[in-house]
Structure formats: structure tokens, C-alpha cells
Amino acid sequence: MNKRKERIIRYLFTALAFASLVFLVGIVFVLFREALPIFGKVSPKAFLLGKSWYPTSSPPEFGILPLILASLWVTLGALVICVPLGVGSALYLHELAGPRQRALLKPVIEILASVPSIVYGFFGMVILAPFLQDTFNLPIGLCALTTSIILGVMATPTVASIAEDALSYVPRSFREASFAVGADRWQTLTKVIIPAAGSGISTGIILGMSRAIGETMTVLMVAGGSAVIPHSIFDPVRPMTAAIAAEMGEAPVGSDHYHALFAIALMLFLITFAFNIAAELISRRFRLKLGLSR
């Protein structure tokens, strides 16, 4: 009886574990099935490198280069914000903060991660955009810079908590060995601790990038939505996620426009997939370097 129960539970958990795999395969399958028809109408090259996105004009134009560049542009901008903020707070937490400060700061960073993205978007639209508009005397505050700042703040907790974990995995013996040969605290930090935790920190940064490039609600609200190739950080942009979110509701199911939106989603999926693979490879190397087997 007991054995049977054990077996049932075992099957149940196996099924649950494989459920994610089923979901992933299902999503990839649907993405490809719904995206591929557009390439019968537009060549992949014209689709990826085309400079104009006029999906509802007649004849329509499906060039997503402005959308891809917009996504990369705001993601890079977000990196400029979240790397110093995230890595800096991780270093402070790990090296300098006393137990009481840690007890306060760690949960605060985690709460930052749990703020819903629409709240960030609202904040960007109502407070940050008008502020930047006045400060830099811009024609409009909804632009790549505003988006980058908000996305950077949103990605900071991801970077900070993974970087902090990476720092805490560096064995005590590394630090002690460094002090033993006469290195001071700064030398130990820059020459020993950071290089040892380096790939862990990089993993955090890449996952932060994934978060920024896939974010939708916020960019829909603050990016401005112009489908042009951005020339400055003050230009309004239309990242891929914003285009999908704004247009999917109205695109007739099965139309070229509909398939083109799926093809954008497929691109986005491939980009974040590449990011995640990179993060995985780097973190594997990191474990080996520290002599941890798994």
C-alpha cells in the first residue's frame, strides 16, 4: 500500500516537473507556427533590416529594424543604470554593511523587485517624463532616456541579488590567503574577490538585461512609441514588446499583420533565449573556477 502511494506521488511530481517543458515546447511551437507565414510575404532580410513599420498602410510595410534597435537601445541604457547601482549595492552589502544595515537593505531591494511594472510605468509617465522634459528642455518627455532609467531601476534588484549571492559564494580561504600575503582590503576586493565572483556578477547582469528587454507595460507607457531608428537618447522609440502589446488586440487574426507581430515575438524569444544560455554558460564556468563541482 505504502509502496503504491509512493509510486503515485513519484509520478505526480515527475509530471509536474515536466509540465514546464511541455509549456515551453508548446509556446515555441505556436510562436513558430504563427510567425512563419509572414516570411512567405516578406523575406526574412527585408523583415529584419527593413526601416519602416507601417503594418496597416496599403500596401503594408513590415520592417522591424527600428523596433529591434529601440529594444537594444533602451536595454543598453538600462545597463548603464543597473550595473553600477546593482553591483555597487551588492559590494556594499557584502563588504561594508553591518548586520543591521544588511537586515534593512536586503529586504528593501527585494521589495523593489516586487513593485508591479505598471506602477513603474505610471511613475515614469507622470513624474519622471515631465521632469526630464523640463530639465533638458525636450519637446516631449516620453523617450528612450526615460525608458532606460525606469528599466534600469527595475533591473537593479535582479543584478544586486545575484551579484550578492556570487560574492557570498567566494570561499573565505581566498580572502584569508590574500590578507596573508599582505594585500590590503581594496587590493583583496579588486584583485581577488571581484574576479572570483566575476562570472556570477556577469550572470546577474545578463539576467537583468533579459528583464529589461522583455518588459512590456512600462515601455508601452513611457517610450513614446515612434517607429523610427533612434539617433539620440532623447528620441521617442518603439521597442518590440510595445509594438506587440499595442497592436495585437486590433490585428485581425490570421492577417499578415498578425503573423508579423508573432514574428517579432519570435525574435524577442530568441534574443532572451540567447541571453539565458549565455548566463547559464558563464555561471557554469564560475562554479568550476571556485572548485565547486555543481
Binding site: G225, S226, P236, A246
Partner: peptide, 8 residues
């Protein structure tokens, strides 16, 4: 014009 701001 392509650089128009698009709102939902």
C-alpha cells in the same frame, strides 16, 4: 510621419 508619438 514615422517619428510621431504613438499612444494606445
Amino acid at each position: 510621419r514615422a517619428d510621431a508619438i504613438m499612444q494606445a
